[in-house]
Design a protein around this nucleic acid. Structure first.
Length: 468
RNA sequence: GCCGGGGUGCCCGAGCGGUCUAAGGGGCUGGCCUGGAGAGCCAGUGCCCCGUGUGGGGCGCGCGGGUUCGAAUCCCGCCCCCGGCGCCA
């Protein structure tokens, strides 16, 4: 028996849909509240490209045939053939120029297509349609926030146990700069601009302890610890993110083809660029630690105070290369890892299933982990966990090779925050705050502070009043 | 940063303007053979396009341009690796 029915598979799920089932692809684009016309455009340009390519390849073939005849000929006949070949090339020139144009257009359109939307994603145009799927911990809710707290929990059918406090905790920015006096965004603003900061002493130790805590846990779970490049080339960046992210988040190095990473996710995704990974080594799980640089161009004047939303911070990131059939289970593992870390810190949180319109092009599904911020009376994003299925893998040419039959397909990639330093610090500043402004250090962090002589061990205290 | 050497398919390695569009090994996948394994034999083993055929074709020798009817082979730019010099935390 002949074993192989030669079934040619289009490896990239989105290109396959584009060609074979464009209506379904349109449905996915509509779910994101994007213009479904991009599907028609991409489809027609893809078709145009294929037609043109076929024409050119036929001409190339004729030209190759002639070229191969030439060395066998002599004298006048040879000259005739050379002229013929030359003329054919002249014709080709214009067509190939056209092809390059079409190809560029096609490439652009293909790369502008967002990922499909997983069936479990709530449909809605913006973050107000995000759906909390579970709550953890017992938030401390200031009396004045009780109504809005209920709005943020009971509306979704959850009954979350909470503790009422009659004093309002000081906001993270205020306590950092004015009570503890361990941060200075004013001076940083003078020398670098808004959204930069100086942090001092205890808070710096806290930053380091958080990172150590995260890498300690993830490495114990078998994740490979990685210190990655902090800058990447253009073609790698575009493999990892969509155009909007590029515009809003990415810093460029002047005069070089280098861009500062906005997260270790970018470098970790790039770790296996252009590789064929055999299925038996999957899943590959990484924990990257790096600074993150973000322009925050789209943020306007949101969160200008303190270190909640800043141009640079440290982050431990989880990144996994997986077989398609296991990626959804791994997504659950990644969010559970993040939850484990925040449970350890005793920060009350909820996990939110991000609505289709708020997803971002690379992700087929995304969870955010949001911590309750007692001073703000809101849950705020600390962790973002995505399954990007084969969206990044296609762009980065990362394929999976099956043992049987040597079939190749695109792998799935996933990413999730473990801990982002400054943002987690804001959560600690508000949640672990005592009435007198003392910050009680979460127990799980203490062993990482032990190694530093001068690090705080149990609490961070308000600055002493200056005598004037 | 400077000078010299080098980057060939999954790996090793030949080719250094046309004898076809990468020799020859090795590995891997499948088939034949076998009681089973091995050996042996056969085929497949980069990307893409056309075709409802086990069919046809284009492009691939670090990347991008150029010369030529024809380039792995010649020229230019860039990247990376090795050695030497310089510089530096």
């Amino acid at each position: 028996m002949f074993q192989l029915f030669w079934c040619k598979v289009l490896a990239w799920s989105i290109l396959k849909l584009l060609r074979e089932d464009p209506e379904t692809l349109k449905e996915h684009v509509k779910k994101r509240f994007m213009d479904p016309n991009i599907v028609d455009k991409a489809r027609s340009v893809d078709l145009e490209w294929r037609k043109l390519l076929t024409t050119i390849q036929e001409m190339r073939h004729r030209h190759n045939v002639i070229s191969r005849e030439i060395p066998k000929l002599k004298g006048e006949e040879k000259e005739k053939k050379i002229v013929e070949a030359r003329n054919l090339l002249k014709e080709l020139e214009a067509l190939e120029k056209k092809l390059r144009e079409v190809e560029e257009k096609r490439e652009k359109l293909l790369l502008s297509l967002p990922n499909i939307v997983h069936e479990s994603v709530p449909i809605g145009p913006d973050d107000s349609y995000n759906v909390p799927i579970r709550f953890w911990g017992k938030p401390r809710v200031w009396i004045g926030h009780i109504e809005s707290f209920k709005e943020q929990t009971e509306r979704y059918g959850f009954r979350v146990d909470y503790e009422v406090i009659d004093w309002r905790p000081i906001g993270h920015a205020d306590i950092l700069e004015n009570v503890l006096r361990l941060g200075d965004t004013f001076k940083a603003g003078q020398v670098a601009g808004s959204r930069f900061y100086y942090l001092f002493n205890d808070i710096v130790f806290l930053d380091m302890a958080l990172l150590a805590y995260a890498i300690d846990y993830l490495t114990s779970r078998g994740y490979t610890l990685v210190l990655p490049p902090y800058m990447l080339r253009y073609n790698i960046m575009t493999g990892v993110i969509d155009l909007d992210t590029f515009k809003d988040a990415i810093y460029k190095i002047e005069g070089e083809d280098l861009y500062l990473i906005a997260t270790a996710e970018h470098s970790l995704a790039a770790l296996h660029v252009s590789e064929d990974l055999p299925e038996e080594i999957l899943p590959l799980k990484y924990a990257g630690i790096s600074p993150c640089f973000r322009r925050e161009a789209g943020a306007g004047s949101r969160d200008l105070k303190g270190v909640f939303r800043v141009h640079q911070f440290h982050k431990v990131e989880q990144y996994v290369f997986a077989k398609p059939e296991e990626s959804w289970d791994i997504m659950e593992e990644l969010i559970r890892n993040a939850e484990y870390l925040f449970q350890g810190l005793e920060l009350p949180y909820r996990v939110v299933n991000i609505a289709s319109g708020d997803l971002g092009a690379p992700a087929a599904k995304k969870y955010d982990l949001e911590v309750w911020m007692p001073a703000q009376g809101r849950y705020r994003e600390m962790v973002s966990c995505s399954n990007t299925t084969d969206w990044q893998a296609y762009r980065l040419k990362i394929r999976l090779v099956r043992r049987k039959g040597m079939v190749k397909e695109y792998i799935h990639t996933l990413n999730s925050t473990a801990i982002a330093s400054t943002r987690t610090i804001t959560a600690i500043l508000e949640n672990c705050q005592e009435e007198d402004g003392t910050i009680v250090i979460p127990r799980v962090l203490r062993k990482y502070l032990e190694v530093f002589e001068k690090a705080p061990k149990e609490a961070i205290h308000p600055a002493k009043k200056e005598k004037n």
